[in-house]
Amino acid sequence: MPENTNHQEKNESLTRRRFLKSSGIALGGLAVGGALGSLIPFKEKTNVENVKSKKTENYNLALMYFTQEQFRMVEAATERIFPADDNGPGAKDLGVAYFIDHQLSGDWGFNSREYMQPPFFKGEKVQGYQGRIRRREIFDIGLRELQNHSLTKYKKNFIDLSEEEQDDVLTDFAEDKVNLTTISASGFFTMLRSSTLEGAYSDPLYSGNRNMEGWKMRNYPGSQMAYTDVIDKKFTVIPPVSLKDHLGH
């Protein structure tokens, strides 16, 4: 939707200009509003013809961590957590499985900014996660056990189960009715659930929330620069913009 993109960009530039006008930043003195100068997008004018002639492929629709089988299972499971309905797309069409795959390949998947030093002891629930296993390994084990549980209970692969059967298997995980030795079944399910919401509603930059459809469903305006015009008004629907729009392309 090149026209649409261009339209949004114009709006965005206007918002930024309006801000610069309305903020009343006093110049002189010891000025510290450092980002102000950089609030105007890089390119203010975009040739509509140019945008039309350049069809952009989404090269992010590939996998960094999951096997194809894991990916299909995550697609199916997250769709049950956040299904397509009258409101709009579900996890699958929002790209949630790509989001989770890409997240697992980085810091989050390796728990690299978390304390992972030994010794490891089982603690009280209120003391939080105390395992030695990192998120990408939790997904490996969790998905493997999801498959095993499906095969045991229904003699079918998870992705071949009916929606009701998939819900049943996921409920067994959520309620710790499956006994796993290495990880907590409900702990894995909780992670799957929270990363589904992250994939549905984070900036499209991260491969989920495709075309900002997650935001549109709940009238969330995304990454706006300013709400000074609506903050004291009645409910206002504002078409969303993403971080991409801030770079002006």
């Binding site: 801000f19 309305s22 903020s23 930043i25 003195g29 509003g33 706006q224 620069m225 709400y227």
Partner: peptide, 20 residues
Amino acid sequence: VSRAACQYCAYCERFGCEYG
């Protein structure tokens, strides 16, 4: 020291302010 007015952008806690 001069600073600009808040724009009610909704990103304060856990975030830095791009307006100062």
